[in-house]
Design a protein around this nucleic acid. Structure first.
Lengths: 202, 202
DNA sequence: TCGCTTTAGTTAATAGTGTTAACTAAATAA
DNA sequence: TTATTTAGTTAACACTATTAACTAAAGCGA
């Protein structure tokens, strides 16, 4: 049946890679059909043979970035035993990624993930699991676990976002503020666990 | 000299109001020259007589939303004395605004504020002052104060953002998680203050 | 080998965005 | 009244995303 593959023709991954180049060079706004086609040296309509328009391009690129990001973070914490060290290292890895690839980070975080989409749901699960395992929140009730995860995710995401928005202009080093926040979060988690235990044994 | 004002001609505030209507009806993407002109019943180029293109429109609308938002939050905490109650009420007001006006909140938060711009700098100062006074962090060193403010802002901003991204789909009530986080943040702040004191008296 | 089919790419066209320039008409100030 | 100012217009241009129709090359089966 016809023409299944040719060696030098473009694959979907080539389109994604070109999009990443665009994003790294020019930021989130460079993620568009026309701009990426220009990068590939083809005309815009040809992209539709590899990806489903702008929406499909965005989705494919976002999933790719998320996988890369999670792999980075997972790799950074490999082999660490101590909980606090694990958490700090993971959080630092996340911040490093955001600083090394600000465009990718912005694209990834601004994308509205849909738990209804099976591929995106997998990523959501993996990303939740990352800090969950880093914090070793095992023997907890469902509600307490969720509360802790929501707080940690919100705080770290929020900090990195405010930093990317260049809203950390005050004299104080943001590196130091981040470390202070991570320590404080561990205390906050301990507090959440403690009050939950108290309420359950009343 | 000519024609200073006419009663029924459009003013800049009319353009901003029309933009707010668009945003409330259709979300952040509706903030554009063409869409707003349609809402006003004029042709797109006429908007340039009142506002400096898309960038000027965005800026004017964002400043307007920020003022409205801060007024809302300030009004909510008026007359409250207890620190914890003040913080909780302020944080709840912020969340209510985000829930009542998701489009405005998205526009406001995605806008890259520039401390170099005098009008935007005023807003940044006011917004920082809000949680600072709500937490009554008076007798602290500059560094500790900044660390606390950065953590609180990051956590609250992050939580509201994750919520708007519809990433709080788990069974657990997000209202409850928010309350738990606010309590935990107060504990975290106390911890930051304490360790700072210990380090300074070593 | 010859053709048939598939497919990556093309051109052309449509609809939407933001923006500038040139013009019109009305309202005011002199 | 006359001159000036200005809110709005139309026309045009440069982008964006997208579809339809076409081209040409690659592979499959005969």
């Amino acid at each position: 049946m016809g023409r299944p593959k040719k060696e030098d023709s473009l694959a979907q991954q080539d389109v994604i890679n070109a999009a990443l180049v665009c994003i790294d060079k020019e930021g989130e706004a460079a993620l568009g059909v026309n701009r990426v086609a220009r990068e590939l040296g083809i005309k815009p309509p040809a992209i539709y043979k590899h990806v489903n328009g702008k929406a499909g391009l965005r989705k494919a690129v976002v999933l790719n970035i998320w996988n890369d990001y999670l792999q980075c973070c997972q790799g950074a914490v490999e082999g660490i035993a101590d909980t606090a060290a694990l958490f700090h290292t993971g959080a630092q890895a996340a911040r490093s990624y955001a600083q090394n690839y600000p465009g990718r980070y912005a694209v990834m975080m601004q994308y509205q993930m849909r738990p209804t989409d099976s591929e995106e749901a997998v990523i959501i699960q993996r990303s939740l699991r990352f800090f969950q395992q880093a914090l070793q929140l095992d023997g907890l009730s469902e509600a307490v676990l969720i509360d802790c995860m929501r707080m940690v995710n919100a705080s770290i995401y929020g900090f990195l976002n405010r930093e990317q928005m260049e809203l950390m202009t005050l004299s104080r080093s943001s590196d130091a503020s981040y470390e202070v926040m991570l320590d404080a979060l561990l205390v906050a988690i301990a507090h959440i666990k403690k009050t939950a235990e108290e309420n359950s044994t009343l």
